[in-house]
Design a protein around this nucleic acid. Structure first.
Length: 206
DNA sequence: AGCACGATTAACT
DNA sequence: GTTAATCGTGCTC
């Protein structure tokens, strides 16, 4: 058993939360008892109404209301007519900010994920924000879900964070119509595939 | 009531 | 490299 990340972890600067989530273990417990997990290997920070790449830019709406809520909760939204996206709310209640979970390295529950992902190759099971929601069956039911309550079925297990050498930082992706400087802010954090083997070795030795 | 758009993905050429 | 898929959401009329 490992401790779950607590609310204090999420109630900090969004960049720090996004960076420090790398290497930690995302856990989804299903109603039938299945345990689906993976190491978080890619995140992005979306930070407040001033960030014109963030959904909060146009103010509070029914859709993005979770971002204004307390930290340590999920913000899950639907886009492109078919995809769900999973975020973790950060900073203080009343300030809309969140970390988008863009990719994990699957560890447990691979067979279930393969079924949901049409038997795609394992490296493609959860290597995109909509892919991981599909594999973990995350949808609107998880919008506002508390990641820190003891009975939560979606949370992050506390681990040593990924070594700095493993982390690449760069601009967020998919923001083509977003004006500068927001489009180019270096708020994407990831562990390149070339580092995955090293990360797994670290994981085994923990 | 109508409409433009999207923090993507998969399947193309 | 390009593009279709597909529809909830928020905005305008």
């Amino acid at each position: 058993m490992f401790l779950r990340l607590d609310r204090a972890f999420y109630a900090r600067s969004t960049e720090r939360v996004a960076r420090e989530l790398l290497g930690q273990r995302l856990v989804r417990l299903e109603p039938d008892g299945s345990r689906l997990t993976g190491l978080i290997v890619e995140t992005e920070a979306y930070i407040g109404t001033e960030d014109l790449g963030c959904h909060a830019r146009a103010g509070r709406t029914d859709r993005n209301a979770s971002m204004w809520g307390p930290p340590g909760h999920a913000y899950v939204y639907f886009t492109y007519g078919m995809h769900w996206m999973l975020n973790f709310v950060t900073e203080d209640e009343g300030r809309p900010a969140a970390v988008l979970l863009r990719a994990t390295l699957p560890l447990e529950g691979l067979e279930i994920m393969r079924l949901r992902r049409s038997a795609r190759p394992d490296p493609e099971l959860t290597d995109g924000p909509a892919k991981l929601c599909r594999a973990l069956q995350i949808d609107r039911r998880f919008d506002g879900h508390d990641l820190c309550s003891s009975d939560s079925r979606l949370f992050v297990e506390q681990r040593p964070q990924a070594p700095r050498d493993f982390v690449t930082i760069g601009p967020r992706v998919g923001l083509n119509k977003v004006p500068e400087p927001w489009k180019s802010m270096p708020w994407r954090y990831r562990i390149p595939s070339t580092m995955m083997e090293s990360l797994l070795e670290e994981e085994r030795s923990r």
